[in-house]
């Protein structure tokens, strides 16, 4: 990247954002992802506040509470946040040229991300067994207010988020393999930074989803 070039007439050349293309491209892509989740979350908010009643967290199931296992998901949220921390650590390592720690932290990130997806699948299986599906069982529909709508929005939002994490894990595996082959150096480690941006974004979306779906 050049320094700004001054051309005749004193006009600066504006050589760009001084961010390499892949990183800028990822930021632009994430702007689009924000709008995608805005669409889903917006729909959820409109449907929830348009509904006559909604399942409340922290209330027993038979009194109009949610069938969701909030403790398990809180733990899962912690897992995902940890994966963001390891991601940051990995990136900080390679910025210092520390390939050994990069590999270590990337591996941890992959494992934590996979654990998140695994726990989410377990949660889904458990909920399905109780009859909580995009279209609830008759039994559950009698106790959970707006159960069908709740189920539909719950699975759509968390499902699309889960898919994003899964894709992230796959990409992270690829980056990790490359790291183990010594593909990143102190000077050149754009791939780690770009996947990191995506990873933190997915993490952030989860914190929002966890808050609005499980906590309030």
């Amino acid at each position: 990247m050049n320094e700004a070039i001054t051309l005749p007439g004193g006009v600066k050349a504006e050589p760009g954002m001084r961010i390499y293309n892949q990183k800028l491209g990822m930021w632009v892509f994430l702007a689009s992802e924000v709008m995608f989740f805005t669409g889903l979350i917006g729909a959820y908010i409109i449907l929830r506040f348009g509904a006559s009643a909604w399942a409340l967290p922290g209330v027993p199931l038979d009194e109009g509470g949610t069938p969701l296992n909030i403790n398990l998901t809180a733990f899962n949220t912690f897992v995902l946040i940890c994966s963001s921390v390891t991601m940051v650590k990995g990136f900080a390592s390679i910025e210092q040229g520390d390939q050994k720690n990069l590999k270590r932290f990337l591996l941890a990130t992959v494992l934590l991300g996979a654990a998140f997806v695994g726990i989410q699948v377990m949660e889904y299986i458990e909920l399905a067994r109780e009859g909580f599906l995009p279209h609830c069982s008759e039994e559950l529909a009698t106790v959970v207010p707006s159960c069908h709508l709740f189920g539909s929005t719950f699975y759509t939002m968390t499902g699309f988020h889960g898919a994003h994490v899964s894709i992230g894990v796959l990409c992270m595996v690829w980056v990790t393999v490359k790291a183990f082959r010594g593909g990143y150096t102190k000077e050149s480690h754009g791939g780690v930074e770009v996947i990191g941006l995506y990873w933190h974004f997915v993490d952030l979306v989860w914190i929002i989803l966890f808050t609005i779906v499980y906590l309030i």
Binding site: A13, G16, N21, G25, V28, S32
Partner: peptide, 18 residues
């Protein structure tokens, strides 16, 4: 879109100000 935006921001020739 990702392509067009990145290209316009980052790949203008010297002197091609916005």
């Amino acid at each position: 879109s990702v392509n067009y935006i990145t290209t316009v921001i980052n790949m203008r020739a010297p002197g091609m100000t916005l």
